[in-house]
Design a protein around this nucleic acid. Structure first.
Lengths: 106, 106
DNA sequence: ATGCACCGTAAGAGTATGCTTACGGTGCCC
DNA sequence: GGGCACCGTAAGCATACTCTTACGGTGCAT
């Protein structure tokens, strides 16, 4: 059950515009034009950003007439969060040694 | 106590090479040459990647002779994780409506 | 049926990014 | 002191990325 392949979630979040979109969508599902109105970029730019986000599995779309309502996919966000959590846990075990002995031998 | 400003943690993780470095450092602190040996890029490339990661606060360096030991900064990772968690929580409240009705009306 | 509103895609340009090679500085060992 | 190993930085290049403008398709309301 991979479910989010095809695009890179991390790369998707690397762009400030896409991150802003994710932030907007986290608060409330929105249409493309609505997102563009709140962002400093054109509507097509938002469309392209949403395409990448959708390929990364971070957002899902829902048709409503001619409008396309995009919403955040919590599962994908959770997957990324878990990866970060794994890094965090692994690093902590080694970090413990460091705090114990900031002065390294020889 | 912000402590991690100056660079963008998300942008830093957007690059596959830097993400690989983070993954290596999560398992164990390493020197530059050691990282380069396990990566498909040159040593200077690793140096540049580490510079960005350091500016983003994701890694910390420790001098050991002529060697520079880099280690992951768990606090920075946790900060990013918390941001993702915030998105996750906000999205969940709206997602609840959707899971109740996977079949959209009309 | 006609007009309108909304959206995705194509093409293009300008910018930004990441890698490699070459160089200089620093600390350790013999 | 001489040599060596390790690392950061500079310059340059090739690539990838993101944005904008222009266009075509679709669904709704009148």
């Amino acid at each position: 059950m991979v479910a989010y392949q095809g695009g890179d979630g991390w790369a998707a979040l690397g762009d400030p515009t896409r991150r802003a979109i994710v932030a907007c969508l986290a608060e409330r599902p929105r249409a493309v034009g609505e997102l563009a109105a709140d962002l400093p970029v054109s509507r097509p730019a938002v469309s392209q950003a949403l395409k990448l986000l959708k390929e990364a599995g971070l957002v899902a779309e829902r048709a409503a007439g001619t409008r396309r309502i995009y919403r955040l996919n919590p599962a994908a966000v959770a997957a990324l969060r878990d990866q970060l959590d794994a890094f965090w846990n692994r690093a902590l075990s080694h970090y413990a040694d460091v705090v114990e002995q900031p002065e390294e031998k020889s």
